[in-house]
Amino acid sequence: MSPSLGPRFFAKARDIGMMEEGNVWITTNGMTNSFSSSSSVDIYNMQGVLGIKTNVPNTKELENFRARWQTKFQQDNPTILHGKLDVFGLWAYDAAWALALAVEKVGGTNFSFQKMNSSHNYTVWGSLEASQGGPELVRELSGTRFRGLSGDFSLINGQLQSSTFQVVNVNDNGERGIGYWTPQNGLVRNINSNTNTKQILYF
């Protein structure tokens, strides 16, 4: 379910009594990541919903980037008062950084372009050119690993990997973190990288 459709779905579920006691709703990563930008009406309609979302470690680099982004966003969009940088924006930034690293390793001089062959007589296709270095760039991008703003960046089969997810519960005026999921430990209540303290999460 898309993040834009989710609030409408839960509004209808509340209307027909399916948000009352005895019903359990669990949302996936894509929708849960959008909770932070939901309106107060949407949050009201989703009271009690459980979800998992990508855990983004809070670092000094991330705090500084958010502050710079917020300043720039307000300058460019003075009529939007509460713009937020969510995990999708962080992923986009990290993806652009990964592409730049891959291009640097491949070398810009290795790129040549060839006109695309098309069986259709579309003018737009006739003007397009394909990079001959594309396969090499894809291979380099697939092997790119670094610590980005959203956490560890790595691609497996073309998909961005998330090593840790946070389990959240929608209540009151927003979301409340209740635990985490990691590939190594499954569901845990706390993750403390300094002391390696982990508590199993039970429902």
Rank of each mutant, 00 (worst) to 15 (best):
Q114C: 14
Q114N: 15
Q114K: 15
K115H: 13
K115F: 13
K115C: 10
M116Q: 15
N117L: 10
N117A: 06
N117Q: 15
N117V: 08
N117G: 13
S118R: 06
S118M: 06
S118L: 06
S119P: 13
S119K: 14
S119W: 11
S119H: 12
H120D: 13
H120M: 11
N121E: 15
N121T: 07
Y122H: 03
Y122K: 03
Y122E: 07
Y122F: 07
Y122L: 10
T123A: 14
V124G: 03
V124N: 06
W125K: 08
W125F: 09
W125M: 10
W125H: 13
W125V: 04
G126S: 04
G126I: 01
G126W: 04
G126V: 02
G126D: 03
G126T: 05
S127G: 07
S127I: 04
S127Y: 07
S127W: 03
S127Q: 05
S127A: 08
S127T: 12
L128Q: 05
E129M: 12
E129N: 08
E129W: 07
E129K: 12
A130W: 13
A130L: 14
S131H: 08
S131V: 06
S131M: 05
S131I: 02
S131P: 09
Q132F: 05
Q132N: 15
G134H: 03
P135H: 00
P135T: 00
E136H: 10
E136N: 11
E136T: 12
E136R: 04
E136G: 07
E136S: 12
L137H: 05
L137M: 04
L137A: 02
L137Q: 00
V138M: 09
V138N: 14
V138L: 13
V138I: 10
R139E: 15
R139C: 09
R139Y: 11
E140D: 10
E140G: 07
L141K: 06
L141E: 10
L141I: 05
G143N: 15
G143V: 03
G143C: 07
G143E: 12
T144E: 12
T144P: 02
T144L: 09
R145T: 00
R145H: 12
R145Q: 07
R145E: 04
F146K: 00
F146D: 00
R147V: 04
R147T: 08
R147L: 05
G148F: 01
G148T: 00
G148A: 02
